[in-house]
């Protein structure tokens, strides 16, 4: 039977939390094995980064939606971490199968990869809670006199000082790695992707420009045809 928007949101939240109950808030044994197979074990860096980003996220979430909502920020972050670990493990399994390697040293020691993946997981959590929504601009729990800002995408990029182009890199692999994502959440990520391709990746300072310069200098770019007379 058709659901009211509130009932639909509550169902999505229950499904997300239910799915993540079996996922730990620490890396699984399998994921730790991937970490240990790296030339440089990234385990400690991963955990330190999560502690730092967790504090940044909760505080910034509280500033955005209301000071009494820092606790909600922590709750969202905790769910995001579980999803982050789960998707990371699935991505690595898939890469191991594709590349026949077990040492993902460069990838797992890349801070940008981890930050992008975590940001994507948090975007999924906030989209599920309706806080990041392109339809109604998201909603905030807060009230009172404090100034509230929207936490709709690309808010998460500003929180983590993450380039849109780097966030874009994880989206497709994220969706592939988690077949339980709802149609609405996938649609939301697709909208984020389009926004990045159309506008955000072309902002001043985007790493896309450096990549284009490198491609051009390495002769990778095709020669542009001169205009016909």
């Amino acid at each position: 039977p058709p659901q009211t928007p509130i009932r639909a949101a509550m169902t999505s939240i229950q499904l997300l939390r239910g799915d993540l109950t079996s996922s730990g808030d620490q890396p699984s044994a399998n994921l730790l094995t991937y970490f240990k197979h790296c030339t440089v074990d990234p385990t400690q860096d991963v955990q330190k980064r999560l502690e730092t980003l967790g504090q940044v996220f909760s505080q910034t979430f509280g500033q955005a939606v209301g000071p009494h909502c820092v606790v909600y920020g922590r709750q969202r972050f905790a769910l995001g971490v579980r999803l982050y670990y789960r998707v990371m493990e699935e991505m690595l399994k898939s890469e191991e199968k594709r590349l026949s390697v077990q040492n993902f040293n460069k990838l797992l020691n890349d801070s940008t990869f981890h930050t992008s993946l975590l940001a994507c997981a948090l975007e999924v959590v906030m989209a599920t809670y309706g806080e990041s929504s392109f339809k109604n601009g998201g909603y905030n729990h807060g009230g009172g006199d404090s100034a509230e800002t929207n936490v709709c995408f690309p808010w998460i990029l500003n929180v983590f000082n993450l380039a849109a182009f780097d966030f874009y890199k994880v989206i497709e692999s994220f969706i592939k790695a988690d077949p339980t994502l709802s149609k609405d959440v996938v649609k939301h990520l697709e909208t984020c992707e389009n926004l990045i391709m159309e506008r955000l990746a072309w902002r001043t300072g985007s790493p896309l420009f450096e990549l284009l310069t490198q491609e051009h200098e390495s002769g990778g770019a095709e020669q542009v045809e001169t205009p016909a007379n």
């Binding site: 991505m91 460069k106 990838l107 497709e172 697709e190």
Partner: peptide
């Protein structure tokens, strides 16, 4: 099920996107 359009080829993955190939 969703109708997300996958752009990566079979031989492409997250490792290449983060310059790890």
């Amino acid at each position: 099920s969703h109708d997300y359009h996958y752009g990566l080829e079979d031989h492409e993955g997250i490792s290449e996107l983060f310059d790890c190939d």
